[in-house]
Design a protein around this nucleic acid. Structure first.
Lengths: 215, 215
DNA sequence: AATCGAAGGATTGTTGAACAATCTGTGGAT
DNA sequence: ATCCACAGATTGTTCAACAATCCTTCGATT
């Protein structure tokens, strides 16, 4: 019913291209060419840029232009710090049976994707899994924050060109976390999740080719 | 060195007015009048609005205008859900001695304000206290999120016209939390903080005149 | 008298063009 | 080779216009 504004549609389109990897980190986004390509005004593109910049998907260099954000080594640690705070907290909240069911659904979605050998789908299933975890807190703000974090992660993965085994490795962990949750032990699930996140961060820092400081 | 753009200065100015209570929740912000008052273009005001909207300080009603955000009952709970996730997580991280010193400084700042009977200062000291707690995590993203949350809270306090005793009541709690932190017991401090936040939420919901559902 | 609907005014959403400010890169002078 | 000036391109911002939408008022109808 609510028709999205043109600026919002432009932002959506750019978000899509970013998620698909059509725009790689570091790439420059020129106002005029985007305005021309999408058939909108430069001013409207500008509004869309403001939105994407607030989501950290894009970085503004004053008088120089906007560039697709690229996560540096420190950013990876930072993003995982946010994830640890939010996901673990939401997990300890427990969540309603429907919330737990959503987590289970994401786990099964991942299994199917792995069976089909589709690691694009495997990646999105993993994001659904973590999104469902945060959703247990029932907090619109936490959901929004997590949404942004996941979008940032997606951006990063395209840069790292993650191989199939990357996600597959985590499938049994997701299963274990989900089982703990389903058997009414959210604290146990939270501990597993925390360990998972720590390991995931290490893996990612490694892929990124960065000497991780043992903190 | 970096000169803020006009749009950013407009956003800053509006943020200031919001923090000072010059613009009360629910008030309408008309593009043309603000543009005229600040001597800038309507388009620039529009960019500033986009920024404030992304911070939830302002709400956009399509084709109707932007209004100063007003926290409803559910929003209070939501904001506290975010605070619990972020603050408690940061607290458990412990933090460097300088970080702890910053927390201590905020506590003392609060004491001085209370002694002087300045509850405007008492409020900001309290915000510094919680900001310092989050800063222990050393995460720019968490700091940014907390900054937005605190800005939202400030908005709400102007609506509720909180009395002096509101903050004063929490001074000894801040002291206790800080002491636990200083004596190397961050987990103990985190537990105290969690209890603090729960009680604070109850108080606020009460002030707001809302039948809180005991969850 | 109350309800409904249609004009009118006001504000937002979007466009297009224009110009100053700033950055980038090229080429020449030392 | 280094430095400086200049030209080109892009951003930042303004202005003016118009369509779309909303709110209000006024009038017509029942």
């Amino acid at each position: 019913m609510a028709v999205p504004s043109v600026a919002e549609r432009v932002a959506d389109e750019l978000r899509l291209q970013l998620a698909e990897g059509a725009l790689l980190p570091g790439a420059r986004l020129t106002e005029s060419t985007i305005a021309e390509n999408l058939g909108v005004s430069r001013n409207t593109v500008r509004e869309a840029f403001a939105e994407l910049a607030s989501e950290r998907l894009v970085v503004r260099h004053p008088n120089r232009g906007v560039f697709v954000a690229s996560l540096e080594a420190g950013d990876v640690h930072d993003v995982y710090t946010v994830r640890r705070a939010i996901e673990v907290s939401a997990m300890r909240a427990g969540g309603s049976p429907e919330d737990v069911a959503a987590v289970r659904a994401a786990v099964e979605e991942g299994k199917r994707a792995a069976a089909a050998g589709d690691h694009e789908a495997l990646g999105t299933a993993n994001q659904h899994f973590h999104g469902a975890i945060v959703a247990m807190a029932g907090s619109p703000r936490l959901n929004a924050i997590m949404g942004q974090v996941l979008a940032e992660m997606r951006l990063f993965f395209h840069k790292a060109t993650v191989d199939a085994q990357f996600y597959q490795h985590y499938l049994p962990e997701n299963e274990a976390i989900c089982l703990a949750l389903e058997s009414g032990k959210p604290d146990r699930a939270a501990d597993l999740l925390l360990a998972y996140l720590d390991r995931s961060e290490d893996n990612l820092s490694e892929v990124h080719g960065d000497a991780a400081d043992a903190e």
